[in-house]
């Protein structure tokens, strides 16, 4: 892992009226790492990820994503990131291939390139038989994998995953993390939010959010040592009790 910073946030703040969803968040994400963004529901994870993806404007703070300023170079950022929402957003009435084709083409990929890459991808996933099936006819676990594969299909520098494992069983979750590892090995930085603490241990580094603030940021191992506990779950419980 290099120490090149791919996301830098300084005092990132987002207020909705009097409610402060993100309170002076400062953190860096390094190129190629899997960065976990943890916290209970409502801690401000989704708000943060929406700001970094350009879906929402921060109230204050200096933020750079993929080396571009989020206020001035929004368009350039968009070309360099991928995003997977917690709803596994694919078009239910389009086929597997049509979904891939659509998302790839709005990122400006060429037809031949899309075709070749889609075939490779489906083969790798052992899902070629479903190429022309409608999304509404395939199981949830597959939708999740496909939504992820679509998000990284155009080879972005960073992929943002907003609670990507909600609602699927542990085995599928494990398989999904294998996909994430493969992606990180290819050099794509993974920024993932989750509230499953066991998943935190799969990350290179994690930040834990509580009531809009970052209360801890380190490698899972260091955090476990620092709090003198057995696993991330207990780290989280200790933090929450404070």
């Amino acid at each position: 892992m290099t120490q090149e910073k791919i996301i830098t946030a300084k005092n990132m703040t987002k207020k909705f009226g009097h409610f402060v969803a993100n309170d002076n968040l400062t953190f860096d994400v390094y190129k190629g790492e899997i960065f976990g963004f943890l916290g209970a529901n409502g801690a401000g994870k989704t708000t943060a990820i929406r700001i970094l993806c350009g879906l929402s404007m921060p109230s204050a703070g200096e933020i750079k994503v993929a080396g571009f300023d989020i206020y001035k170079q929004n368009e350039k950022i968009k070309k360099n990131i991928g995003y997977m929402s917690q709803k596994f957003s694919l078009y239910e009435d389009l086929t597997v291939y049509e979904n891939l084709n659509f998302y790839a083409s709005i990122y400006g990929m060429q037809k031949n390139e899309i075709k070749k890459k889609a075939d490779e991808l489906l083969e790798k996933l052992e899902f070629s038989y479903a190429k022309n099936k409608l999304i509404k006819d395939i199981p949830l676990g597959w939708k999740q994998k496909l939504a992820f594969s679509t998000a990284v299909f155009h080879n972005p520098k960073i992929v943002f995953l907003d609670e990507p494992t909600g609602g699927v069983d542990p085995v599928t979750r494990r398989q999904f993390w294998d996909l994430i590892y493969q992606t990180a090995e290819e050099g794509i930085t993974v920024f993932v939010t989750t509230h499953y603490m066991d998943e935190a241990e799969y990350c290179d580094r994690v930040s834990i959010m509580d009531e809009g603030k970052i209360v801890a940021l380190d490698t899972p191992l260091n955090l476990i040592e620092q709090y003198k506990v057995q696993n991330m779950d207990e780290v989280f419980v200790k933090i929450a009790r404070k």
């Binding site: 350009g54 968009k78 070309k79 995003y83 929402s85 709803k87 957003s89 998302y103 709005i106 400006g108």
Partner: peptide, 14 residues
């Protein structure tokens, strides 16, 4: 509703 709007808003489509 299905969340696809978010995904295309994140994309380079304006």
């Amino acid at each position: 509703e299905t969340g696809t709007m978010e995904v295309i808003l994140v994309s380079p489509l304006n």
